[in-house]
Computed example of a mutant assay.
Amino acid sequence: MSALSELKKRLRPGQVYRRQDLEKWSNAVDRHVRQLLDEGRLEKVSGGVYMAPRQTRFGKAPAKPEKLVEAFLKDDRFLMVSPSAFNGLGVGSTQLYNEPVVYNLKRHGRFKLGGRTYDFRKKSSVPARLTQEVLLVDLLQTMDRLAEDKAELLPRALERARSMDPVRLAKAARDFGSVRAGRLVAQAFEA
């Protein structure tokens, strides 16, 4: 069996690979990657990151965004948030956004992965999961970047904060939020 055939056997649809992952199964990784790209068995996501597309009845589908981001960062400690999720807080936001925000410990900037742009924001700590409290803190710290009218959105966000568990909200603000978000959370409970 050729080294290329061995490499093809190892590829799993929907998985994302770094070049160094493929080196384990290939004696000429650059040549084999080029051949797999030409055959459509791999697609380049970004420099040194490739995905094996999944075949669906609608055609080829990309890997899940979480897998793309994890391979890109070489780290699974990140939180991906779509600003569209703010609409679920019931504070009057209605906009739909197409660019997910990735809070992480390593990278900062906008990067295109698999044809989609992600806004990477480096933080000193990242929550393990997205809770309503973390989402509200994120809304408070990113309000200036949103398309909604801040003068209308802020009072409703503070009102929503007052309906949440104050201990969990304060912890989310302290662990994840900006200084400004922490001040706004404290202000919500002073009123």
Score class of each variant (00 low, 15 high):
34 R>S: 15
35 Q>Y: 07
35 Q>D: 06
41 R>Y: 02
42 L>Q: 06
44 K>T: 03
48 G>Q: 09
49 V>L: 11
50 Y>H: 07
50 Y>K: 14
52 A>S: 12
54 R>S: 05
54 R>W: 03
54 R>M: 13
54 R>K: 15
55 Q>H: 11
57 R>W: 08
60 K>L: 15
60 K>I: 03
61 A>V: 08
63 A>K: 08
66 E>M: 06
66 E>H: 12
70 E>P: 10
71 A>P: 13
71 A>C: 13
72 F>E: 04
73 L>I: 09
74 K>R: 10
76 D>A: 09
78 F>T: 05
78 F>I: 06
80 M>C: 09
80 M>E: 11
83 P>Y: 02
84 S>G: 07
88 G>P: 00
89 L>G: 11
91 V>Q: 02
92 G>A: 03
96 L>Y: 09
102 V>C: 07
107 R>F: 07
109 G>M: 12
110 R>E: 07
112 K>L: 07
112 K>H: 06
114 G>Y: 07
119 D>M: 04
119 D>A: 10
120 F>R: 07
123 K>S: 12
123 K>T: 06
124 S>R: 12
125 S>L: 05
126 V>A: 10
127 P>L: 13
127 P>C: 11
127 P>D: 15
132 Q>I: 04
134 V>P: 01
134 V>Y: 01
138 D>F: 07
139 L>K: 00
142 T>N: 15
146 L>S: 01
147 A>D: 13
150 K>F: 02
154 L>W: 01
154 L>K: 01
156 R>Y: 00
157 A>C: 14
157 A>H: 09
159 E>T: 08
160 R>P: 13
160 R>H: 14
160 R>M: 09
160 R>E: 14
161 A>F: 10
161 A>D: 02
163 S>K: 11
166 P>M: 04
166 P>S: 05
171 K>L: 14
